[in-house]
Every structure is written in C-alpha cells, then in structure tokens.
Simulated scan of single mutants.
Amino acid sequence: MSLLKAYTNLPPKTKLTVGVGLVAWGLLGLTFGDKIESKLGFTPTEADKAELEKLAPKIHVVERKS
C-alpha cells in the first residue's frame, strides 16, 4: 500500500493531527534550529562560507540592444 493511499484512508481527525504535527515540527525547526546548531558545533566557519560563495551562481547583466 502506498503512503498516499494509507494517508487517505485515515480518519479526518487523524489527518488533522498529522497536519498540525508537521506544521509544529517545521515551526520548531525554524525557531530553534540556529540555537541547536551552535550548541552541537555545526556553525559554518568563514572558510565554509567562502567555499559556498564560490559555488553560488553569478548573475551578469547584459545590455539589450533596442
């Protein structure tokens, strides 16, 4: 049985509980994610930030002839 079919077979109250739980999990992650990262030692160093900057795409504006 697929995950979607299993979800659609759940009662409406259970679907609501699952949805609220997922939203709460996301909000907790957004709220406390940075604090937990710093406590676990996962904060990026300046070298990591520079390496990421090199990988980011660059946008060059080209004048259009009218």
Rank of each mutant, 00 (worst) to 15 (best):
L30K: 09
E53W: 01
G21M: 08
H60Q: 10
K49S: 08
P44F: 00
G33F: 06
E46H: 01
V23T: 04
G26D: 02
K5N: 13
K5G: 08
E46P: 00
E51P: 00
K5T: 15
W25C: 08
K54V: 00
E37Q: 09
H60R: 11
S66E: 09
T45E: 03
I36E: 05
S2R: 12
M1N: 09
G41F: 01
V61R: 10
D48T: 02
V23F: 09
S66C: 01
L55C: 00
T43V: 03
T14V: 15
K39S: 15
L30R: 07
Y7L: 13
T14N: 10
E53C: 07
L3E: 14
G33V: 06
A50D: 07
D34C: 06
K39H: 11
N9E: 15
P11G: 06
A6W: 10
E51V: 13
L16E: 11
V61Q: 11
A24R: 01
G26V: 13
L28H: 06
L16H: 08
T43R: 15
E46N: 07
G21F: 02
K35H: 02
A50Y: 01
V62P: 00
M1C: 06
W25N: 04
K58S: 05
P57D: 07
N9C: 08
L52Y: 05
A47E: 11
T31Q: 10
G41K: 04
K54H: 04
E37N: 14
V20R: 00
L28D: 03
M1Y: 10
P11F: 06
E51K: 13
G29S: 03
I36C: 06
L55G: 00
E63F: 05
T14Q: 15
L30S: 05
F32D: 07
K54W: 00
V20H: 00
